[in-house]
């Protein structure tokens, strides 16, 4: 299957390894990768801050960039959610909204794509250690993807999964919230970090670049030696 990759701006700039792992993983599963270089950002930073009109041109640009695809896959629950919101955002412009709908219908978050489209539950990964999984809010609540990551992680050879207490609470990222309301965000991320530490797992896995930057950044600041990994990296370990 030909997969058009939306790598996300965070991964493009900061988490190159996650992008590489996504490509290698999908190729290993028999997919052919298409990476349109015209891709930019899904538009969430300005959209979520209320700058809806200003975001529309970026959104249209993304639609133009991806509408040729058979399927679009992205290693981010949050950015996939944003693609799914495009039709509603462009509601006033029926032509664009219809194009957005077609794009949304074929856009998948990475683990959802592997489990529900490729129908693969075991990607043949191997990683020794104990891990906890942080379910990101947009992916679980707005996209409704709850089980796919666990299904895939539970089949990673050598990896022992441990439940993360208070997993349902947001990590405190929230895009500009993390800087606009820094002191609240700090308390939220601290609670997340403490919960991860309490599992005594050596790895914390997540599916969203934003959460990872936030949690890993706080762990580094607090000198906590838990490794924060994107799920693509875990599934690509072998």
């Amino acid at each position: 299957m030909k997969v058009t990759l939306f790598v996300t701006c965070l991964v493009d700039m900061f988490e190159t390894n996650v992008g590489k792992a996504t490509v290698e993983l999908l190729e290993r599963l028999g997919c052919e990768i298409d990476f349109p270089t015209a891709q930019v950002c899904c538009g969430q930073p300005s959209y979520n801050s209320g700058y809806v009109e200003h975001t529309k041109s970026a959104i249209k640009k993304m639609i133009e960039t991806f509408e040729h695809a058979e399927v679009v896959v992205t290693p981010s629950g949050s950015c996939a959610t944003m693609f799914h919101e495009y039709p509603q955002i462009l509601n006033d412009e029926p032509g664009w909204s219809a194009r957005a709908r077609l794009l949304a219908e074929k856009t998948y978050e990475l683990t959802d794509f592997i489990v529900n489209v490729l129908k693969v539950e075991n990607v043949g990964a191997k990683l020794n250690g104990e891990a906890a999984y942080h379910p990101s809010c947009h992916m679980t609540r707005l996209l409704g993807i709850k089980d796919a990551p666990f299904t895939l992680l539970s089949n990673v050879e050598g990896l022992e999964m441990r439940p993360l207490p208070y997993a349902y609470n947001c990590c405190g990222f929230g895009g500009t919230f993390s800087v606009k309301m820094g002191n609240i965000s700090e308390q939220m991320v601290d609670e997340k970090v403490d919960a991860a530490v309490s599992t005594k797992a050596s790895i914390l896995v997540a599916s969203d670049g934003g959460c990872i930057m936030n949690i890993a950044g706080r762990m580094q600041r607090r000198h906590i030696p838990v490794k924060v990994m994107h799920i693509a990296e875990v599934l690509n370990a072998h």
């Binding site: 493009d12 900061f14 700090e186 991320v189 890993a216 950044g217 600041r221």
Partner: peptide, 20 residues
């Protein structure tokens, strides 16, 4: 504001798109 609380990742010399 970000680094008041947490570390910020460095931009990679090689972006994903360069690697690709």
């Amino acid at each position: 504001e970000w680094t008041a609380i947490r570390e910020f990742p460095t931009l990679k010399n090689e972006r994903f798109r360069d690697w690709y």
